[in-house]
Nucleic acid binder design. Structure first.
Lengths: 407, 407
DNA sequence: CAATTAATTAATTAGGTTACTTTATTAAAT
DNA sequence: ATTTAATAAAGTAACCTAATTAATTAATTG
């Protein structure tokens, strides 16, 4: 069962560079590698896996048989037409594992149950003015009950965890007054994992929301195409993620890719943060100024075209800011690409990317390798989906940055 | 011999995530791990190594004996005074391996021979107005001959490579005229590695100069203390390096940590690069304006105090710029620390760090985890030293980011 | 044109090796 | 006598190479 591949707890040691390897560690590593290769390529026959992994065919064969008997991979239809024995592509078994993904946003929460191939099996929503701990946890508890009930009883044990995507220091953003403000502030002292542990035995992983979105893009979206990139997610605020060596880099404190905090230049030449120069809340504020209903931004994609006299200047400013921010990130890491996504309609994303490309071409790029500017492909659901990836990845896939598990 | 630990060539494969592991891969990994732990802690008895690596004592013992017979580690004096059998600390054998480090700078080149514990065995210099390929390679060829001759004949086979530290796109910085300019431009078409291959069979590794400095700081300096940090090296221009998970991250194209290209804000609020706002060439330019000899900056450390009426404003501006740049890097990666070093006297470095700390405290740090600001410890020689680390690390030490070598 | 043979490729089995683990032993100190 | 470090011996897991089985296409022949 999946237990075999669960990462072992490491004792925290001073000066630990990495961990020693033993046989079982090797098998674990290789099994995760095979699953990662199959995931990445959708379906692969054993020979290709052997070639890609550098392992011998018999080894791959034996690992695949084990994975198959564990219900994690399954055989596809034999491929004929070439000389020789037909190959049997192996693919992930959709029912191999499940995970919950919870996104806690500033306007709404979103809980989904994702299967092993990244398909959303069921989903529930909650809207609010601002999230309060008690309401969120009640929503989650009830949601878990409901979503679990949808699953055949024999598959419920395959749910391997709960991933939570939340903004960094959630409590720092609202300036509320009164008793509800006090309740909101309690986020500061709440341990999300321990609260959830009160009503669910499943392991909990908490991630930065934009990093989670990046994760989803990386595994199920365009991110597959690039080895390393910075990812911008434009929501009410702006956040980001970082991918290095084909794997999302969360950072020591989980705060890598805090791209909203990149320094930007205000109209008067003063220093400000990107989040104050290029988020959707700026557009919202502008719409409020002219008495437009801002809800339509989130609920009605066509409204964006209707509002183009307000959207256009916003797009222009945002693109300029993103262009500069993109190059700044490339000064730190020589990213191959910059991916841009957000909670807006496809045509806006496309227009934004086009404009960013244009602005990047006008910048001073001495000392830099200019990255490709590309559009993300997942959109608003990315955060919850990425959150759900957490437990699945921890149990079954390779993570370049974590080092290998010990025996 | 060292051949056992040489990284194997990998065939370039599409979609390679990582490489499969076999027994020999395991042994190689563990041997490198042990060497890395010993290097990091200067000297360690087997029991401690076992604890730190998570390997069993017999395994560590057997690997150590192999490393000992290969001449890579040696026994220290038994530590008595505690109950039980005295422990025998193992340390790197200084004569275990050697490497050449060549720094190609804008004003001078520097070639040194480094031993296995990072000691400089011999060193030669070359000064110029600007570096020309033919002169540099002649200097290197002659230098290799001379420095090799210093070594006992039986140890010459232990020289494992040549590390070269050079600025990114060297040819892009000078605006020369005339025939010598043409010769300088040829850097663009020169492959440093193949030129060197004409007169030396040793493997060659080329690194970005600031990344090399970072490497030296990381292995032999203060960098040991931090798990991840951004490193600023202030020379004629400003460069940087990036350390993630206890290991220098070079980037896909070797251009990670191009911190001189970080965006900065000019006096009139215009966007400019950090390199134009905070390098020593700014101070030089100011001194030239007032007809001061600029050579003294590089040759006479005491001159900095004498010139304080010019140095002080430069320090102030540089510190402000570094403070903002430091936080920008932390928006990309949540670095634990920022290390600052440069080609200037110790008291200047110290003063600079103090001021950067002060400025950081005044910045907008919403969404960020504020890093520690620390001084580097190696100074001007860091680049050549770091360059020499390249071949040694490639052969004997663990590199978190490269993945493990295949069988 | 059908049947046969050759060639090719995929997947698995068998046997051997490596390098790890656990358990036991020896050595040297307080 | 007890404690701790280091090594030795025995056992095991997981890899590799080489050989085998299987399934197909391609070529040849009566």
């Amino acid at each position: 069962m999946e237990g075999d591949y669960v990462a072992r707890m490491e004792t925290a040691l001073i000066q630990t560079i990495s961990t020693g390897l033993s046989q079982s560690g090797v098998r674990d590593h290789n099994a995760r590698l095979l699953l990662s290769l199959v995931q990445r390529n959708v379906a692969l026959p054993g020979t290709d896996i052997a070639r890609l992994s550098g392992l011998s065919a018999p080894t791959v064969s034996s690992i695949l048989r084990k994975l198959e008997s564990d219900g994690l991979v399954e055989r596809g239809d034999a491929v004929r037409g070439k000389v020789g024995k037909p190959s049997i592509p192996m693919r992930l078994a959709p029912t191999g594992a499940y995970a919950f993904g919870l996104k806690i946003g500033r306007r709404s929460a979103n809980l989904l149950l994702m299967d092993f191939v990244g398909k959303v099996r069921a989903e529930v929503h909650l809207s609010y003015d601002y999230p309060l701990p008690s309401e969120i946890f009640a929503f989650l508890e009830e949601g878990i009950r409901a979503l679990t009930a949808d699953l055949p009883a024999d598959q419920r044990t395959r749910i391997c965890g709960i991933g939570v995507a939340a903004p960094f220091e959630l409590w720092n953003w609202h300036n509320l007054k009164g008793p509800r403000a006090k309740s909101f502030q309690t986020w500061k002292d709440v341990s999300i994992a321990s609260e959830i542990a009160r009503f669910s035995p499943l392991p909990v992983m908490v991630t930065n929301d934009a990093t989670a979105a990046c994760q989803a893009e990386h595994i199920y979206g365009r991110g597959k195409a690039f080895r390393d990139y910075a990812y911008f997610f434009i929501g009410a605020f702006i956040g980001g993620g970082v991918v290095l060596n084909n794997s999302v880099f969360e950072g020591r404190q989980g705060n890598a890719g805090a791209l909203g905090s990149l320094r930007s230049i205000g109209l008067n030449g003063e220093s400000m943060q990107l989040v104050d120069a290029a988020s959707l809340h700026l557009l919202e504020a502008r719409l409020q100024e002219v008495d437009q209903d801002t809800r339509q931004l989130w609920t009605d994609p066509t409204s964006w075209k209707r509002l183009s006299r307000y959207v256009d200047p916003w797009l222009s400013q945002t693109a300029q800011e993103l262009a500069k921010a993109s190059l700044s990130t490339c000064a730190v890491i020589d990213f191959e690409a910059i991916l841009i996504d957000g909670a807006f309609p496809d045509h806006i994303r496309h227009e934004l990317v086009t404009r960013v490309r244009r602005y990047v071409a006008t910048q001073d790029t001495r000392g830099l390798i200019v990255p490709a500017i590309e559009a993300g492909s997942i959109g608003a659901n990315a955060r919850a989906l990425g959150a759900a990836c957490g437990p699945i990845r921890a149990n079954f896939f390779l993570n370049t940055h974590q080092g290998l598990s010990a025996a």
